[in-house]
Design a protein around this nucleic acid. Sequence first.
DNA 1: CGGTTAATTAACCAATAAGTTAAATATAAG
DNA 2: CTTATATTTAACTTATTGGTTAATTAACCG
Lengths: 122, 122
Amino acid sequence: MPDNLSLTFSALADPTRRAMLARLSEGEASVSELAEPFLKSMSLPAVTKHLKVLEKAGLITKSKDAQFRPCKLNAEAFRDVADWVEQYRIFWEESFDRLDEYLKTVAAEKNKKKGRPNGRKK
Amino acid sequence: MPDNLSLTFSALADPTRRAMLARLSEGEASVSELAEPFLKSMSLPAVTKHLKVLEKAGLITKSKDAQFRPCKLNAEAFRDVADWVEQYRIFWEESFDRLDEYLKTVAAEKNKKKGRPNGRKK
DNA sequence: CGGTTAATTAACCAATAAGTTAAATATAAG
DNA sequence: CTTATATTTAACTTATTGGTTAATTAACCG
């Protein structure tokens, strides 16, 4: 049983599902509305399965309206992803001096623990 | 052949791999250094495989230093994830009025296209 | 050179994922 | 009640994933 974040990332690792999320970012949609762009390339049960994956990952919620099942985005899962990636911001924002500085601070704390790896030959 | 973002999310969908990335956020590490916390629970070849997944996803790069293969984070893939999730920010930042407003604008644009789904019974 | 350490490759296995078609369920509507 | 629409479930297939052990490659060290 994978943890939530694993479920979420796993759900996002599919372009069909990401396209469905993109569609939902423009508002609620029923299963068949969501399915419409994909029916050339996959069956309806396949769509149902994708939606189930998104639902289990907490990325969407489904409700009932007559025979329809309107879906919408669920903020929390997106926030979880955003929070996770946030901790790496320093690595992708090109401020190499700050990064370098940062890496040195962590390294310094670390060297009290075990003096092995970072002395190299050459 | 999945697209890059799919590869990346897929690589992130595993707690072992995310732990490796966390370790690398504290600085470069060789394969065996990265492996160390996991050797109780998995073999070295398993670690190699995980690293290969991270590498193919562009999340890390490997270099050579004698018989060691120091690994480090690769900013771009993280930026891709951050950029992707950014487009959903409005959904997870609790400004429901703005969200509501936003959704209405998109809906308005949309209603010129097809007048079906949003009239409801009850 | 011969041994040791670091890491990878090969061959295999079990579980999961992503799709299929056919059948079933739920609700609305005539 | 019957039919039509929306969606899901079941059963099955194929490919991929994540792990294993055994063998191999690469580079250093005495």
